[in-house]
Amino acid sequence: MAFTQFVVNGLLIGALFAAVAVGFALIWGVVDIINLAHGEMVMLGGYTSYWVLTLVTGNAEGSPLLFLVTIPVAILVLFGVGYALQRTLVSRVIGTDIFLTLLVTFGISIAIQQLALQAWSANPRSIQVSFADPSFTVAGLVVPKMKLVAFVGAIVLTAALYLFLQKTRTGRAIRAVSQNPEAAALVGIDVEHTRAVTFGVSSAIAGGVGAFIATILNIQPQMGLIYTLKSFVIVVFGGVGSIPGALVGGLLLGSVEELTAGFISSRWTLAVSFTLLIVLLVVKPQGLFGEGAEQ
C-alpha cells in the first residue's frame, strides 16, 4: 500500500516537473539553447503569484478560485520576462559556441537569483490555499486536493502548449523555425520574433507551474537550478522535442523521487536525481522517445 501511495504522490508531483521540462525542451529544440535560467522562471512565477495574492488578501492565503486567478498573471509576466531575455541577451549568442550560450544563460540565472535574494530574502515562502477538507481518500489512497489541482493545472498547461504548437499559426511558425530557420525566414517568418515568442511561451509555462509549486512545496530564490537540472533529466530521458516523452519522463522522475523519499530518506532525493542524470546521459543520450539528439 505504501508503495502505491508513494507512486500516486510521485505522479502528482511529476506532472509539475514535466510541465517545466516541456518548456525547457521547447527552447532547446527551437532556439537550440540550453536555458540554464529556466528554473529561475519557475521561481519568478511562484513569487509573482505569491505577491499578487498578498496584494489582494494581505497575506499569502486565499480560496482555490482566488489562487487560480493569479495563474494568468504569472503566465503573462513570465511571458514578458522570457520574451525580453531572448530579445535583448540570448539572441546575441545564438549561432556561436554552445559553451557561450550556456554561460550566458548561467549568468542570467545567477543575476536573477541574486536579485531575488536581495529583494525577497532567502526565507522559503509558500502560498496557503484553504480547502474545507484538505484531502480525500480513494481506495485507501490519500490524495491532497491542492496536489490534485496542481496536477490538473500542470497537465492543462502542457496540453495547451501542445495545442498551441499544433493548431495555431504562431505554433506552426515556431515549429518551422525549429526545423530550418533560413527556410522559415524565406517564407516570411520573423525568426527573431518567433524565437523570442518561444522563449516567452516556455517561460510562461514555467511561471504558471511555479505558482502551483508555491502552493504544494515552497519557493525561495535559490530553487531554480534544481528545476533546471530536473528538466534536463526529463528531457534527456524523454528525448528532445517530444512532449509525450517529457510527460512520461516527468511522471517517472516524480515517482522515483517520492519512492526514494519514502523508502530511504527525503534527504537522498536530489542525490538520486542527479546521479540518474549522469547515468542517463551516459547510457542513453538519445532519449527513449526523441528524434535522437545529435552529439
Binding site: 550556456l102 530518506s265 542527479f274 551516459v282
Partner: peptide
Amino acid sequence: AVVLRLRGHYFAIATLGVLLAAQQISRN
C-alpha cells in the same frame, strides 16, 4: 572515463550533475 565521452550540452550538464550529486552526497 564516464563524462568525457559526452560532448557539448551533454558534457556541460553532466559535469554540473556531478558537482551537485557530490554536494548532495556530502550533505547526507
